[in-house]
Amino acid sequence: MQATELRGWIVAVVTDQPDRVLPGGCPVFVGRNASERERIATVLGKVLRAATHDLGDGTWVLIRH
């Protein structure tokens, strides 16, 4: 993990707006609301060693840098 370098790939997508995400090669997890989305993202971020980034529309991408 190079801290100064952006060399990431998307390992998962977590959203509470399923209509805004299309499945495309990486798993998509749907939370029913914001708190469920946060719970899923926290767990996934830890087990996948990925950072959670906010796309701003109720969708988070988990990226391994």
Binding site: M1, A3, T4, G45, K46, V47, R49, A50, A51, T52, R64, H65
Partner: peptide, 11 residues
């Protein structure tokens, strides 16, 4: 290892 967000960063 499992909290990537707390890594130090220089931009």
């Amino acid at each position: 290892l499992d909290v990537a967000e707390l890594a130090p960063l220089a931009r």
